[in-house]
């Protein structure tokens, strides 16, 4: 007994080090495979508020540019609206609405890591929940992962764990959108069958297979495509529409039917 105690006292630093190392590795490896740990994320109160203050100061520097972007976005929507023939007959009835939108702003962005997360200034208070889609006026940005009262972290498309259903525009050939961590403006679309005719410059949009994003939200254009090792599927390099280094205003999409879809899928797997 005496010897054990002596041993512990003698090697207490080493034991402390090993203990803390295992602790941090456990946290890290656990989130390699699944969602980011609910504890280690910047949507917590302190980090969120400090980023919020810093955002409050820096937000003034690019107001002009952001206003210009929002004007362009408005223009696009107006163009669509004025050319819509039956605009007067559309009933905006809550029973017909499938998606609701929450607007937000990015308060922390990263794109140099392997697993990039974006922090936004909307949280549970604004009814933002896990697994909502986040887009900008140009295209897809990511999926909400953790929320606190006032903030949320978004798993960016530039994340090793990111996996979004996507397809080639105007076709029904869909695959998964992943990131190989190499370049922050290029993501990969995999699992597109070899038979599909592809052209460089084709547009990639979100697919209908996911209950997170609505169909046909733009993602990017085809930059380059190759067959993968099995020679039966394409690996496509997609040039993102979004400039991931410069993002300010975002839209968070809430699919009102998601609960129902998940519920239905759960009953199928149970049987």
């Amino acid at each position: 007994m005496q010897q054990i105690i002596n041993f512990i006292i003698r090697y207490k630093n080493f034991l402390l080090y090993i203990f803390l190392l295992i602790l941090s590795l456990a946290f890290t490896i656990q989130s390699h495979s699944y969602h980011q740990s609910a504890f280690f994320n910047s949507s917590n109160w302190i980090a969120g508020n400090i980023y919020g203050i810093s955002h409050g100061i820096t937000t003034y520097f690019d107001l002009d540019e952001e206003n210009e972007k929002l004007l362009q976005d408005n223009k696009k929507l107006r163009d669509q609206l004025f050319n819509l023939e039956s605009s007067a007959t559309i009933n905006i009835d809550t029973a017909n609405i499938k998606y609701t939108i929450v607007t937000g702003q990015v308060i922390k962005n990263s794109y140099a890591d392997q697993r990039n997360y974006i922090t936004i200034n909307r949280g549970k208070k604004d009814s933002v929940k896990q697994d909502m889609g986040v887009i900008t006026d140009l295209g897809v940005l990511g999926i909400v992962e953790n929320t606190s009262q006032k903030f949320a972290t978004v798993q960016s498309v530039l994340n090793k764990n990111s996996n979004i259903n996507a397809k080639i525009k105007n076709t029904n050939h869909f695959g998964s959108l992943i990131w190989d961590t190499r370049n922050y403006d290029i993501v990969q679309l995999i699992d597109i069958p070899r038979l599909v005719p592809l052209t460089i410059g084709d547009t990639i949009v979100t697919g209908a297979m996911s209950s997170i994003f609505p169909e046909n939200i733009p993602i990017g254009t085809i930059k380059k495509f190759d067959l993968d090792i099995s020679k039966s599927f394409y690996t496509i390099d997609v040039d993102l529409f979004n400039d991931m280094t410069n993002i300010k205003n975002v839209y968070i999409i809430n699919n009102l039917e998601r609960e129902e879809i998940l519920e239905l899928e759960r009953t199928i797997t149970n049987e």
Partner: peptide, 19 residues
Amino acid sequence: DFFSDTMALHSAATITIAY
């Protein structure tokens, strides 16, 4: 780590050099 969403990577590296 709290701020940069890096799980516990910074902690692991920092305790190593501290030790």
